[in-house]
Simulated scan of single mutants.
Amino acid sequence: MNAQPPTRAAALRGGLAIALVALSAATLNASPAGAAEPAPMVVAPYLYNGWGSPPNPSTITDATGVKWFTLAFVLSNGNCNPQWDGSRPLTGGVDQQTVNTVRGNGGDVIPSFGGYSGNKLESSCSNAGDLAGAYQKVIDAYGLKAIDIDIEADAYSDPTVQQRTVDALKTIKANNAGLKVYITIGTGQSGPDTSLINRAASSGLTVDAWAIMPFDFGGAGQNMGDLTEQAAEGLKSALKSAYGYGDDQAYRDMGISSMNGITDNNETVTVDDFKTILGYAQQHHLARLTFWSANRDRPCSGGPADSCSGVDQTDWEYTSVFAQYTG
Rank of each mutant, 00 (worst) to 15 (best):
A3H: 14
A11N: 14
G14Q: 14
G14A: 15
L23W: 09
S24T: 10
A25P: 00
T27W: 12
A30C: 11
P32Y: 12
P32D: 08
P32F: 13
E37W: 08
E37S: 15
A44N: 06
Y46T: 07
G50E: 03
W51H: 11
G52H: 06
S53R: 07
S53G: 03
P54W: 07
D62A: 15
D62M: 10
A63W: 03
W68H: 13
F69M: 12
G78T: 10
C80F: 05
W84P: 03
R88C: 01
L90G: 05
G93C: 08
Q97T: 15
T98A: 07
V99A: 01
V102D: 00
D108L: 09
D108I: 13
D108T: 11
P111W: 06
G115Q: 06
K120E: 01
K120D: 01
S123H: 03
C125G: 13
S126P: 05
S126V: 13
A128P: 00
L131T: 12
L131H: 09
A132P: 01
Q136M: 12
D140S: 15
K145Q: 10
A146E: 03
D148S: 12
D148G: 13
D150G: 03
E152L: 09
D154P: 09
Y156H: 12
Y156W: 12
S157N: 15
R164W: 02
T165R: 03
D167Q: 14
K170L: 10
T171Y: 02
T171C: 07
N175R: 11
G178C: 07
L179M: 02
K180S: 13
V181F: 03
Y182M: 05
T184D: 01
G186T: 06
Q189K: 15
G191N: 04
N198P: 12
N198C: 12
A211L: 04
M213T: 04
F217T: 00
G218M: 07
G219T: 13
G219P: 09
G219D: 01
G221N: 05
Q222R: 15
Q222F: 04
N223F: 08
M224G: 00
L227V: 05
L227D: 00
T228P: 04
A231R: 02
K236Q: 10
G244T: 08
G246Q: 07
D247A: 15
D247L: 10
D248S: 14
R252D: 00
D253N: 15
M259S: 07
N260S: 02
G261R: 03
G261E: 00
G261V: 07
E267Y: 00
T268Y: 00
T268C: 02
T270W: 06
V271I: 15
D273C: 11
D273A: 14
K275M: 04
G279A: 04
G279N: 08
G279C: 02
Q283C: 08
H284D: 04
A287C: 11
T290C: 06
T290F: 05
S293M: 08
S293P: 06
R296C: 11
D297Q: 13
D297N: 13
G302C: 10
G303T: 11
G303R: 11
G303D: 03
P304H: 06
P304N: 08
A305H: 02
S307C: 09
S309K: 07
T314H: 09
T314E: 04
D315G: 08
Y318Q: 10
Y318L: 12
S320C: 11
S320M: 10
